[in-house]
């Protein structure tokens, strides 16, 4: 599966500082703590930039992260990968994978590890409150319903004026913008007959 000797999960707290949430063994834990304290290492770089960092051979980066590399190799690790943990568009932490021997990372394994990080993020945040879940569900329902309304409105408008779906959408969106209305609200009003859409403009393309 994944060729890993040890792993650690770090999540950012409210102040944006990384805290160790889980580690596969104590040695890794010490390392994570070490990274934080010294403000150096691939994990922190990954978190700050939101991109994966791969170090196939720690001996080659000793000049960059001197104390981290020294400590890592002393613990028996020769290669490190750090993958961002993302919630929607926000980087909330990092997954750190350590390996005992140096060498390139399996190109197939990296996307799997990233996906694992994504699933882990979602699972960890299962601790979120019921209120938040409820809010998220509301947002999801609203978004799905909006999509339905907009498509229904396109159909109705297309049929009424004998235009195609794309023209209908462009016309609706233009009307919403120029009258400063939410597209989905406009769509709903048009469908239930309370919005006559006067001054609607069509473009032929």
């Amino acid at each position: 599966m994944l060729d890993v000797s040890a792993a650690g999960v770090l999540l950012a707290n409210r102040d944006g500082e990384l805290r160790v949430m889980a580690a596969s063994d104590e040695r890794v834990r010490l390392l994570e703590l070490f990274q934080l304290q010294n403000d150096e290492g691939p994990c922190l770089q990954c978190f700050h930039h939101g991109t994966a960092v791969a170090v196939p051979d720690l001996s080659t980066v000793a000049h960059r992260w001197p104390r981290f590399v020294a400590e890592a190799r002393r613990s028996g690790f020769e290669a490190v990968q750090a993958l961002p943990m993302r919630l929607r568009d926000e980087v909330v932490g990092a997954l750190n994978l350590f390996r005992a021997r140096p060498g390139p990372f399996d190109p197939v394994g990296t996307p799997v590890a990233q996906a694992l990080a994504d699933v882990a993020t979602i699972s960890l945040l299962q601790q979120r409150s019921t209120v938040r879940s409820s809010v998220l569900n509301e947002q999801l329902q609203t978004a799905l319903n909006s999509r339905v309304l907009i498509e229904q409105a396109k159909g109705k408008l297309a049929e009424r004026h004998d235009i195609d779906m794309e023209q209908a959408f462009t016309a609706l969106r233009g009307y919403a913008r120029s009258h400063n209305r939410r597209l989905s609200d406009l769509a709903r009003a048009f469908i239930d007959g309370t919005e006559p859409l006067t001054d609607l403009v069509f473009r032929t393309h």
């Binding site: 909006s146 999509r147 339905v148 159909g155 109705k156 049929e159 597209l183 469908i191």
Partner: peptide, 25 residues
């Protein structure tokens, strides 16, 4: 601000468009 849902996957717009068409027809 459009409230567009990413990764909707199996959503088929035609069923809803057809429903809209039928309101007129």
């Amino acid at each position: 601000p459009d409230g567009h849902v990413r990764d909707l996957g199996g959503y088929r717009a035609e069923i809803d468009q057809a429903t809209g068409i039928l309101t007129e027809q």
